[in-house]
Design a binder for these strands. Structure first.
Lengths: 159, 159
DNA sequence: AGAGGAGACTTGAATCAATCAAGAAAAGCG
DNA sequence: CGCTTTTCTTGATTGATTCAAGTCTCCTCT
């Protein structure tokens, strides 16, 4: 896996300068996929001492534009980042605690591009988000955060 | 279509009190699908005189919980609402101007529920967002807003 | 029809993610 | 080794959304 390539090399290979904040952000996201910005800032500071929040925002934007990171933002959530890019995967989000997990899309190569009328849009990406409850929340288990229950806006869609 | 049912009746039928702000919000969203909250506030005030922004937020939340409205929020966008609920439709969003259009999902009844490993999540909804450019933006036409080009975070997904 | 009470609205302040701006620091080049 | 450009820091600001307290009004029950 490319996960073993040192972050410094990844940065250089993508034409990005190697700085302490950048290395720290990349490693934080690699090790903690789907983290939000606040968590990433905390992780970066643990790892690398004081770094301004602005630097983290800048780094996340630059690395996302470079294709090193992917930015996701389920409804009602703040921005989250992951280092798994370039493949064909989607996400499942827990309505109760906001937990996110990856879902490979196995239904053929382009299952969702078969939508009917595209209204003349030129489509380049299909993003799929599954909503439900995670194992911990269903069990009322330890992983359950005391977030407000996120209302299922329209249950039964596709089910 | 149910579009012809008076908004007052729709509210009553769903156990919601009939008030001036509620009627105005429902009609505004019916006539302007995919509007954001600020636009809805403006439309409501045109239609019905001064109404507090808080009232509009409250009404939108209550009507969404009641299943009368659906709330969508593509990455990087503010909350948007539509009155088309209960069916199996998705959205295509323009990266340049943010325009949203409806897309029926015709690939069988539950095309996207066939994701592989669901990590133990109990899934109740599958939300699909297509990203691309709308006809106006491709033409550089009059519909083009001067929004910053939203970077395609990972082009080619599913295409 | 009128009163009571729960629910809805208004006003005004607060929160919080995210962005903007200007100057200081440092990465990488020659 | 110094220069130039990019990046980082500091501090302020924006803007959507939420919170809180008080007033109003829709609906029901008599």
């Amino acid at each position: 896996m490319s996960q073993t390539v040192p972050s410094e090399d990844v940065l250089r290979a993508n034409g990005l300068r190697v700085t302490r904040p950048r290395v720290a952000v990349l490693e934080a996201v690699r090790e903690n996929p789907h983290s939000d910005t606040a968590s990433i800032i905390a992780l970066v500071r643990e790892r690398s001492g004081e770094v301004s929040h602005q630097a983290v925002y800048d780094v996340l934007r630059v690395m996302t534009e470079a294709g090193l990171l992917r930015h996701i933002q389920p409804s009602g959530s703040v921005a989250r980042y992951e280092s798994r890019v370039g493949d064909n995967h989607h996400h499942v989000v827990c309505r109760s605690c906001g937990a996110v997990a990856d879902v490979d899309c196995v239904t053929g190569a382009a299952p969702c591009m078969e939508g009917s009328d595209d209204h003349g849009f030129l489509i380049d990406e299909c993003e799929v988000t599954f909503w439900g409850s995670c194992p911990d929340c269903r069990a009322g288990g330890p992983g359950r955060n005391d977030l407000e229950e996120i209302p299922p806006e329209r249950k039964g869609t596709h089910a």
